[in-house]
């Protein structure tokens, strides 16, 4: 087991190194220059602008050769310094991200986990109840094929705009400051509901269909047939099938959980929800190298950690992998 984990760690470290390098490179491949954007926003006289421009270029160390920038970037990264945002100058990138991440977790953690649980249960039921299968299957395909953004727009328009039941922007009302009170929590949940519902529905469709197909596959497997010919009750066979069908679903869940720090870009944009997805959009629009790098760094780390955890969980759940890695 130790050797297996060591091997995995090495692979993940290498992946991290290359991913971070690409992360550093991509914003710099965009045409234009963030400092120009920053300076032009200030609407200064041409000569003052030129002075400010060279000052900022030096301050952000964008005047150095690329290889030097790259090395400095790693140095700062290892000290835990993600730099300063250009869009919201002079706030540090780390603070912006840490402010946004709770909203992502608050929105996506319930959406992913609840849709996973509900999807698995309903999918497993659909595999053996015909009328449920006939209704859930088409519904599931429609839901899972729906773009998040489109469903979000439909919900915002119908329940928010037309029916007026829910607000369609922000994480809380503009008139309130975040504090701990029932009024604020109620307001938070009220704003949270539509983005949550749009994510939940789309994900639910995917999980339910995946589970249904896996269960049907498992119920047709040789071991199910053997148990059935030996008169085992359907309950026992379903129990086995469910457990085996869960394995791919667990991988799917882990991958989803890994990406939740990235927020749900489209949903957060539609509902102007202040999560990481919203930050990424602003960072791109403002050519904010450092903010963009920081956001992607969080995503990379999240995905890698989730994958690593799933490698471990999988080994615990599935004896086939456990034997494989202990080399027995």
């Amino acid at each position: 087991m130790g050797r297996y984990l060591g091997q995995k760690l090495l692979i993940y470290s290498l992946t991290f190194f290359f991913a971070v390098t690409i992360d550093w490179l991509i914003p710099r491949l965009m045409p234009g220059n963030p400092v120009d954007t920053l300076v032009s926003r200030m609407a200064l006289r041409a000569d003052v602008a030129a002075i400010l421009r060279s000052y900022y270029l030096q301050a952000f160390q964008l005047d150095l050769p690329l290889w030097q920038q790259y090395l400095n970037f790693w140095g700062a990264l290892l000290r835990g310094d993600l730099g300063v945002s250009i869009w919201l100058f002079p706030q540090p990138v780390l603070k912006l991200i840490l402010d946004a991440v709770p909203y992502d977790l608050f929105l996506l953690l319930p959406a992913v986990i609840l849709s996973w649980i509900a999807g698995n249960q309903v999918g497993a039921m659909a595999a053996r109840v015909r009328w449920l299968d006939n209704s859930i299957l088409p519904l599931g395909y429609i839901l899972t094929a729906t773009p998040y953004m489109w469903l979000a727009l439909i919900l915002a328009w119908s329940l928010g705009q037309v029916a007026g039941l829910f607000p369609i922007a922000g994480a809380y009302s503009f008139g309130i400051r975040p504090h701990l009170s029932w009024m604020f929590i109620k307001d938070l949940l009220w704003h949270w509901f539509l983005p949550f519902a749009s994510l939940f529905l789309v994900m639910f469709g995917g999980w339910a269909i995946g589970m249904r197909n896996m269960i049907i596959y498992e119920l047709e497997a040789d071991y199910s047939r053997y148990l059935e010919s030996l008169g085992a009750p359907p309950r026992l066979i379903r129990k086995y099938a469910f457990r085996n069908a869960m394995l791919p679903q667990i991988t799917g869940l882990a991958l989803q959980l890994g990406t939740i720090v990235a927020g749900a870009v489209a949903t957060e944009i539609v509902f102007a929800y202040p999560g990481t997805g919203y930050l990424i959009l602003q960072a791109v629009l403002n050519q904010d190298y450092f903010l963009l790098q920081g956001c992607f760094l969080f995503i990379i780390t999240g995905v890698l950690i989730a994958n690593f955890i799933i490698d471990i969980i999988y080994a615990l759940v599935d004896p086939r992998i456990r034997t494989g890695m202990t080399g027995a």
Partner: peptide, 10 residues
């Protein structure tokens, strides 16, 4: 199919 007749995860 006796060789595959047992549940692999039990």
């Amino acid at each position: 199919y006796a060789m595959n007749a047992l549940n692999p995860t039990r």
